[in-house]
């Protein structure tokens, strides 16, 4: 899936996260995480984000995450939503999302 425009999903509220995606300036994926619990879960959050992007077939783009202590399922859902919005996808392959 290709990110073609800037898009946003989520909120900054506690236990949620705000995900911003934008088209790649160069090649490859740039994932930037900022989290209230960076120390404890930073690596895991990044892994969940990258796995989700991988499952969606996103190989290029900038993904910025402002995390407020969200669970993995919330992270996956917000990343999926932001990517689908940014890729302007109208038809979903639901099995790839689960």
């Amino acid at each position: 899936m290709k990110i073609v425009k800037e898009a946003l999903a989520g909120t900054l509220e506690s236990s949620d996260l705000l995900v911003k995606v934008s088209p790649a300036a160069g090649d490859g994926l740039d994932v930037v995480i900022s989290s209230e619990v960076m120390q404890q879960f930073g690596a895991q959050i990044e892994q969940v984000v990258r796995d989700t992007l991988n499952a969606l077939g996103v190989t290029d783009g900038l993904v910025v995450v402002e995390d407020k202590g969200a669970l993995d399922c919330a992270i996956r859902a917000r990343v999926q939503t932001a990517v689908l919005r940014g890729a302007e996808v109208q038809t979903f392959n639901w099995s790839a999302l689960s």
Partner: peptide
């Protein structure tokens, strides 16, 4: 409280809707 974070989330979403990221 959490009002400030909701407020900022709302304004950022509104900005995106208006084409400002």
């Amino acid at each position: 409280g959490s009002l400030s974070l909701t407020l900022l989330s709302e304004v950022v979403h509104l900005a995106y809707e208006r084409g400002h990221s």
